[in-house]
């Protein structure tokens, strides 16, 4: 079946199998930032935005994406780079394999939460697994990126 989606601001028409999941559809379409890490909808690596909301593309039936707007890291390169600078400055990208899904979630969080506390940041990102960094460097990077650290310092 054919689906029409708005992929990173461009209308595209893609042929999909009926039982295909969005992660596979997008990768086959050359969207290489999509990574799959688990097969059981619980690692967060494949996170993309559907209608601006972060979802697991491995658990999202492609047919249900018909007519929807899909955003991947390729569509947010400038913002992604701005955050990645902080991540890389901390050394907390490590193997980098989970970074795309992680950054998609961080950028969604930035839109959704105002001045989040450490606890709120951690809660929002619990669904993003990482085996390399131990998460702490990621938190340092996020706080610097969001200016939260600075904000607290001023108070």
């Amino acid at each position: 079946m054919q689906i029409e989606i708005n992929l990173n601001g461009k209308k595209v028409s893609i042929k999909v199998k009926k039982n295909e999941m969005l992660a596979d559809t997008l990768r086959a379409h050359g969207v290489y930032s999509i990574r799959k890490g688990c097969d059981t909808a619980c690692c967060g690596l494949c996170t993309v935005w559907v209608e601006e909301k972060p979802v697991l593309s491995c658990a999202f039936l492609s047919l249900k994406a018909q007519g929807k707007s899909i955003t991947t890291l390729e569509g947010l390169q400038e913002e992604a780079e701005a955050f990645a600078q902080h991540l890389v400055a901390e050394g907390s990208e490590q193997c980098g394999f989970c970074s795309p899904g992680f950054i998609m979630t961080v950028l969604a969080m930035k839109r959704e939460l105002k001045n989040p506390s450490d606890e709120e940041i951690i809660h929002y990102l619990t669904g993003n697994l990482c085996r390399c960094t131990g998460y702490l460097g990621q938190l340092r990077a996020i706080k610097k990126y969001l200016g939260v650290a600075q904000h607290e310092f001023c108070r």
Partner: peptide
């Protein structure tokens, strides 16, 4: 010195 990883930006931003 805490030099950033030379491949850091590419792998962090989802490059193939």
């Amino acid at each position: 010195k805490s030099i950033p990883k030379i491949d850091g930006m590419a792998i962090a931003t989802g490059k193939p």
